[in-house]
Structures are given as structure tokens and as C-alpha cells.
Nucleic acid binder design. Structure first.
Lengths: 144, 144
DNA sequence: TTACATGCAAACGGTTTGCACCCGG
DNA sequence: CCGGGTGCAAACCGTTTGCATGTAA
């Protein structure tokens, strides 16, 4: 189970005629080390902190590959730089983002998935990915 | 009706101790000249094309003000630069974005608004704004 | 008259790229 | 061995900012 994502990545690279280098392995392992949002800069420092290494250039290049094979998806945020999260082994979900404390609440809604399907059918649109985010104030921050 | 947005903007500026300069008026007028997405670069050239002028710096500064007073909102997109649309006089809506032809289909859904409310209530979250976008292939592009 | 705004050009900061060297298969 | 990969530093490009000058109220 733990190494499933590596198997997927390895096979994807192979099919593409690419190699699984130690940098790519380090990035993959860090991306899957815990669930949550991250950005390329996070990754750069966390990989260093673990005594491994990969340049920023390799991180950006590898993230591109991980998007391509569907192991990672891009999470859209208001601030200007890209955020990502790994998706293998996780149901797709949406986000509530607190404008005060920055907390991200994950949201799973069966109803939302259904509604989404309906809306696509109505427009005869084939949906490949979606983003649903609400910004506002979380329980704790509202209390203050 | 036509000049309602100017009234709103003027009053907002006044309250802030700011002035309605001709550059700001030109930007406002261009932003409201038709409904749809635009980015700062679009705006820059369209304003020129109409024989008015405003520097990029003023465009960025003015967009900030328009966001602040709620006449414009930021639309999130996958590509890296910001997109906006004016919202005064329009119901909030969501988007279907075609990955092939780039077409943006507007979506209005009462059910979605309701669902959103429910989800917020469940988490005791006060929603200030939301984004819902689906990316995929539109009717025409699917046919090909 | 006097803040506040503007335009310009330089600075910024995240991301991409060219290139010489490196290494996985 | 060799084609793809890496790190570095420079290039990119959308956005922001400092500053001298212009202008709305």
C-alpha cells in the first residue's frame, strides 16, 4: 500500500521513456509523506531537512510529471503561487478556507458530486476536474 | 442604471479620501463595458484602443480598489495570472471552462447555493465568497 | 493649494530554461 | 555507454513599488 504510488509513478515514467532518479524519488516520497497542501518552496526545504536533496528546478519539473500522471493535483488559491496536494488514495474533496487563521477544512459531499453531474449533463459538458472552495471565517475565528 | 457603478465607486473613494481621476474613470468604464472575464493586460490595451489611457501601474492599483469596494471579483484560473470580472448588477455564478477551446460557460444554480449554505452551517463556517469551477470539454469540442 | 495619483522604470518573486556535467538502465 | 536528468544561474513575466511630476477638489 505504502509503495503503491511509487509503482504508479515508475510505470508512468517507464512508459514515457523517463527514469526514476533519486531526486524524483525524494520528491515523490515527500509529497506522499503526509496529506495536506504544499507548495514547491515547502517541498524544497522539507526535502533538505530530511537530508535528501533536489533543486528547485527539479521540483518544478517533477511536479509537472506528477500532475501529468494524476498522482497530484493543483489546488487553486487566492494568493499568487501554486499549491498542490497528492490525491492518490484520497477521495476528491473540496475546501473551506479561513481568511483569518488560514486553516483549510476539507469537505466531502456526496450531494455536491451528484449536483455537479447534473449540471454537466444539462450543458452536455464532460468534466475532467473541478474546484470548489469557499472562503470565510471558521468556527473559532467567528467566536472572537 | 448605466452610471450606478460610477456612483458606487465615487462614494467609496470619497469615503476613503480618494479621488475619481480620469484614469480611474476610464478603467471603471472599460471594466463595465461588457460582461466577461478580463485580465489587467486586456484592460491596458482596450483602454488604449478607445483613445483613453492608463498605465499598467494605475490599472493594478485601480483593480485593487474595485475589489475592495466589491464592484469586481477575482476569478481563479489555472494559468498563472489573475482574471477578474465585474459583478455589480449580475448574480453570482460559477464557471465551466473548456480545456480545448477555452470557452467559459456561466452557470447559475439555485441548488448549488442552497447546498453551499448547508455545508457552511454544518461546519459553522461563515462564507464570504466562493469559487466553483469545472474544467473539461464543451459540447462542440466533445463532438470532434 | 495640497494631498493624493500618475507614469516610468526598476525591483520583486515565483517559475522556466539553457547548458555543461552527471547518472540510471 | 548514452539519452535523459540534474543543478546552477540567468531569463521570464506578471505584479508591485519608489520617486519625481501632475492634478482633482
Amino acid at each position: 500500500m505504502k509503495q503503491m504510488e511509487e509503482k504508479i509513478f515508475r510505470e508512468f515514467l517507464e512508459k514515457k521513456g523517463c527514469k526514476l532518479t533519486k531526486e524524483r524519488a525524494a520528491i515523490l516520497s515527500e509529497v506522499f509523506s503526509k496529506h495536506g497542501h504544499f507548495d514547491p518552496e515547502d517541498l524544497f526545504f522539507k526535502i533538505r531537512a530530511k537530508g535528501m536533496k533536489a533543486s528547485r528546478a527539479s521540483i518544478y519539473r517533477t511536479l509537472q510529471l506528477l500532475l501529468e500522471c494524476g498522482l497530484v493535483e493543483q489546488v487553486e488559491r487566492v494568493d499568487k503561487h501554486a499549491h498542490y496536494e497528492h490525491i492518490f488514495g484520497h477521495k476528491h474533496h473540496d475546501h473551506l478556507i479561513c481568511l483569518k487563521c488560514g486553516k483549510v477544512i476539507q469537505l466531502f459531499s456526496e450531494k455536491l458530486s451528484k449536483l455537479q453531474e447534473q449540471l454537466c449533463k444539462k450543458e452536455n459538458f464532460r468534466c475532467v476536474s473541478h474546484t470548489f472552495e469557499m472562503k470565510g471565517y471558521c468556527e473559532k475565528c467567528r467566536a472572537r
